[in-house]
Simulated assay, not measured.
Amino acid sequence: MKKLSVWMSMLLMFSLLLAACGGSDENDNASGDEGNKDYKLVEDGKFTFASSGEFKPFSYADPDDPTKMVGYDIAVANAIAEELGLEPSPQKYKFASIIAGVKGDRFDAAVASHTITDERAKEVDFTEPYYYSGPQIFVRPDSDIETAEDLKGKDVAVSKGSTYAKMAVKYTDNIKTFDSDVVALQALSEGKNDAVITDFITGQLAIKSGFEIVAKERLGESEQAIAISKENPELLKAVNEALQKLKDNGTLAKLSKEWIGEDITTSEK
């Protein structure tokens, strides 16, 4: 009986040990999977995001290495990837096609200064805004254009696929489209159109860069956010949480001042 009792005690201890080990594995998997497997990724371990690479100072070719992109959008995306414990994988893509790329699972997200609009929100989900901007009219110094009303009948240039393209049709039927806002502003500077409607930050930077243009009427404030597939709500939640941490710890404002020269992470409204 004594040997039987000892044997039963050993069996009980062995069973408890197995149960403990099994419980530990389950908890480890739960915590380990929370960062990566609650959401889908184009490539495991990487945060694959699209930017145009043609929208200085938000995304543009690195002067030291033209094969890489730098700018505020890129810096924000890299910081988000770090918060998620993922490797950032930036992809240069034409702005007008980026939303379709997100929908088609070509990218995990678009960190490309997309303005939140009702139309775009039908195609993709948006995070909370990571900066606030707004359209502005830019013209040559000798122009008599001052306000949106003065654009009637004028040649107005905008970037393809931007919200400014749809805004411009309110004021004129003569719309010229370019692959990027910078190219549109360059064309304006060279006298190839009468005005450009674009983000006020991009226009101001073009002026500082030596473009022969001046700023006129501001046309409101817009919210810029990250676009994510509607089929990936878990990633949307994770990116929003990462953005909130970056706002709370001051990283987002720091990156804005570094790349833009001022803090554009809060609304003026």
Rank of each mutant, 00 (worst) to 15 (best):
K2E: 15
K3H: 14
S5Y: 10
M8F: 08
S9L: 12
S9Y: 06
L12F: 12
F14G: 07
S15P: 04
L18E: 15
L18A: 11
C21N: 13
G22T: 11
G22Q: 10
G23N: 14
G23V: 07
N27E: 15
D28A: 05
D28E: 13
A30M: 07
E34I: 08
G35L: 07
K37V: 14
K37P: 12
L41E: 15
V42D: 13
V42T: 07
D44Q: 09
K46E: 15
A50E: 12
E54T: 12
P57K: 02
P57A: 08
D62A: 02
D65I: 07
D65W: 05
D65V: 06
K68E: 15
M69C: 05
M69W: 01
M69E: 15
V70N: 11
V70I: 14
G71Q: 09
Y72P: 12
Y72R: 00
D73C: 02
D73L: 00
A75V: 07
A75D: 15
V76C: 04
A77T: 08
A77G: 13
N78S: 10
A79T: 03
E82C: 01
P88Y: 02
P88S: 00
S89H: 09
P90W: 03
P90Q: 03
K92Q: 15
Y93I: 05
F95A: 09
I98Q: 14
V102I: 01
G104M: 02
A110Y: 04
H114M: 06
T115K: 04
I116V: 12
T117W: 04
A121G: 12
E123Q: 12
E123G: 04
V124T: 06
F126Y: 11
E128Y: 00
P129F: 01
G134S: 03
I137G: 10
F138L: 04
D142G: 10
S143K: 05
I145R: 02
D150K: 00
G153C: 05
D155E: 13
V156E: 14
S162Q: 03
T163M: 08
T163I: 08
K166S: 14
M167Y: 11
A168E: 10
T172W: 06
N174S: 13
I175G: 01
S180K: 01
D181Y: 03
V182K: 04
A187D: 12
A187R: 03
S189K: 02
K192Q: 13
D194H: 01
T198M: 00
D199N: 10
A206S: 11
A206Q: 12
I207N: 05
K208G: 09
S209Y: 00
S209D: 15
G210R: 05
I213R: 02
V214Q: 08
K216C: 02
R218C: 08
S222G: 07
S222Q: 09
A225F: 06
A225H: 09
A225I: 05
A225P: 13
E234P: 09
L235E: 15
L235Y: 13
A238V: 03
A238H: 10
A242H: 10
K245I: 06
K247T: 13
A253K: 03
K254T: 14
L255I: 08
L255A: 09
G261I: 03
E262R: 05
T265I: 05
E268Y: 01
E268L: 04
K269V: 13
K269Q: 15
